[in-house]
Design a binder for these strands. Structure first.
Lengths: 159, 159
DNA sequence: CTTGAAATAATATCGGG
DNA sequence: CCCGATATTATTTCAAG
């Protein structure tokens, strides 16, 4: 785990809310000069706490209004290993998690239509090692893309 | 649906990959001047295609190594409406979707430990209108935070 | 680790094609 | 809608406390 002081945490919170904030503005909040903020940001990047900067694009706006979660059951073979790179090649798959439970993989997907979801589902079923799929369609998203770090974040668990 | 030409799409793709790219760099890719790129970006923001800019923060780095999906069953009462704002007040809930199927709401959550997940689960069960919860723990994340717009994005479906 | 100041590079604005 | 030029701001570097 990366050690972060309070200033680092605040910087992360501010940047994940809006990374277009200037180092001057951020510096004012944390009580540091812009140069120091710059320095800390570079360090956070190198240490892996800051993994990138991305614009949030409305899925609706770009023609991907349908969101769904798809559960995948895999056979026991070594295809379990090889299936991840294959899935990564599907642009409609936004997330891919390995889970504990009834299924093996959980995917979050974005598609233009329910017809496209059906089509995607079919293509997944055809993959080597996939024995079953199950789709869960999102009716509406109440919220997502929320900051991951709650502002204060209670003190660390001692492991 | 927002109408986007090819340049707009390219701009969105580039910005969602890395929104620190300069308008000079983007302009070179799409064959437009920096001033024009600037202009288009502002328009994309106003039209709602660009919803914000956020730094991606490593959940591990900030002490939230455990990810889970929690399904919620609600009673039929009007508490269905009031539960969303309540959930939004939970900082550990990153996403909240209304789904079609066995359950009513699907949450994506980040917590410091499995103990914290247990605690969260308990707090959710106690909420007015929640009759059942079910947790699905993520063992490992193969990928997430992927761009939502695949580079070319096949031609529009005609509805 | 921090800073102010200087050098560099970006964004924002605007008149006009 | 697009551009070039200008003005304004921000980032980046650096020598030094």
């Amino acid at each position: 785990m990366i050690q972060l002081d309070e200033a680092d945490r605040t910087i992360l919170v501010l940047l994940q809310q809006d990374d277009r904030q200037t180092y001057v503005q951020i510096g004012a909040q944390v009580g540091l000069s812009p140069a120091t903020v710059h320095d800390r940001v570079r360090k956070l990047e190198r240490r892996g706490a800051l993994m990138g900067y991305q614009a949030r694009v409305s899925p609706r706006a770009v023609g991907l209004p349908v969101t769904a979660f798809i559960s995948l059951n895999l056979d026991g073979g070594q295809s379990c290993r090889s299936v991840t790179p294959t899935l990564e090649a599907f642009p409609e798959i936004e997330e891919c998690h390995s889970v504990a439970g009834d299924t093996d993989l959980l995917l979050k997907v974005r598609v233009p239509s329910t017809e496209a979801l059906e089509e995607l589902n079919y293509r997944l079923k055809c993959l080597e090692g996939v024995v079953r799929t199950q789709s869960l369609i999102i009716l509406s998203t109440r919220f997502e893309d929320r900051p991951r770090i709650p502002a204060p974040l209670g003190r660390e668990e001692h492991v």
